[in-house]
Design a protein around this nucleic acid. Sequence first.
RNA 1: UCCCCAGUAGCUCAAUCGGCAGAGCGGGUGGCUGUUAACCACUAGGUUGGCGGUUCAAGUCCGUCCUGGGGAGCCA
Length: 463
Amino acid sequence: MAPVAARSMMRRFFARSATMAEHVYIDRIADHVGQEVLIKGWLYNRRSSKKMRFLQLRDGTGFIQAVAAAGEIPEAKFELADRLPQESSIIVRGIVRKEERAPFCGHELGLIDFDVVSESADYPISKKDHGDAFLMDNRHLWLRSYKQHTILRVRATIIKAIRDYFDDHGFVLVDSPIFTPAACEGTSTLFETRYFEQKAFLSQSGQLYQEAACMALAKTYCFGPTFRAEKSKTRRHLTEFWMVEPEVAYLDLDGDMDLAEDFLVYVVGRALEKHGAEIRERLERDIKPLENVHKPFPRISYDDAVSRIARIRDQATDPEIRQSLALEPEDDFGSPHETELTKRFDRPLMVHRYPAAVKAFYMKRDPDNRSRALCVDVLAPEGYGEIIGGGQREDSLEALLAEIDRHGLPQSAFTWFLDLRRYGSVPHAGFGLGLERTVAWICGLHHLRETIPFARTMDRLAP
RNA sequence: UCCCCAGUAGCUCAAUCGGCAGAGCGGGUGGCUGUUAACCACUAGGUUGGCGGUUCAAGUCCGUCCUGGGGAGCCA
């Protein structure tokens, strides 16, 4: 329907109202018990019998049921309420009352009248089960459903909590660029694009720029989208995801771990404070493990972790598990190692001092053991895996030059980065937290694609 | 790049050893006690992902390609 037609219909509707009912949002409905109100939304579902009509409505802030018995609303509307298609947009007038029998929110609306703003065609997402591929093809509509609606609101709260934490702890937001001239880490595959007459790449990390920023502003962070062209087809990978990356001058590895720990406790706490009930009831996630997220987190070294994994492997009887937990000396962990390790802890696990050989060129080596890097991974419990990677950065010019050579990277690409070690270099550290993995963990979701409004994966660029 | 699984009605799935392609939901029609993924009856709806092969006969077996899903590697 054209907007003009919709407006004139709304004017007619309001003109008919004897009393000028107030438009309220469903999330504030409990404040209006006994009052006549307007709900502006969509028809989520309907049921009917000969003498009753039940319209389940959603308005973007929540879900509520409207009820009418025969004779309580105009007869034509009573008929219409039995055949109006799912997801038609409607404006409903009714009286708010408490009602324990009603689904969703413990309140319902006694219908007085309603008008259709736009009648829906056949809505593709039905009330029964659908497959993942179908739902992702219809992601633009799937967002309207009960669970997805909740997840997006939790995601928004987590983003706000992340910003609030850093803003309230003396960090300055310094946005890193998205177009970059070369690989930041030289490991991951980058998306290549044209930048006028030259090649450019989409950023896979804002960290190197944060190292420059923290030398100017002491404590900085960036928070934005990140792009990885890796051909990873798993539920833990997206090609476009959001990452927050704090960086602090004069911070060492222990301080970095303190920061990551304090930050995670805050973010989980904020999510539970605002959405704990919804996460438990709507997403059906057991929130006890989240309520366990207090300081201190266990901190174990890579070498300690290796011997723990070896013990777990020795105790395993299943040959497949034994095979998957095999580990060569100095190897990085794979998903099976992380999963088995985190199962033994009731809160996020910090693993520090991995072999320098498996880490990026900018990691500072441990002066007590030059084969180890001053880095840390934070592994979420319940099999959610790595949500934070970080550590102390190499601050010596000579050592950094040697690492760039050892990794086969062109020095010319890092001229400005090396300048940071020429002009008043100091110890500094930081980390990156993957937003979608954090949302998946807090919401208890199986797959990352539900944690972001429109997921980009190896095989999906639409909708 | 490699390994595994799947593709049948708009959607979710079934079809025994290779032997007449079916059900639920959704749509339509009618009924119905405050329904909770409401329920009941009737009804329409199919080139079984594409191509090729084996066979009297292929949704089913073989080859190949496409699409999707899961995992490895890599990573947040």
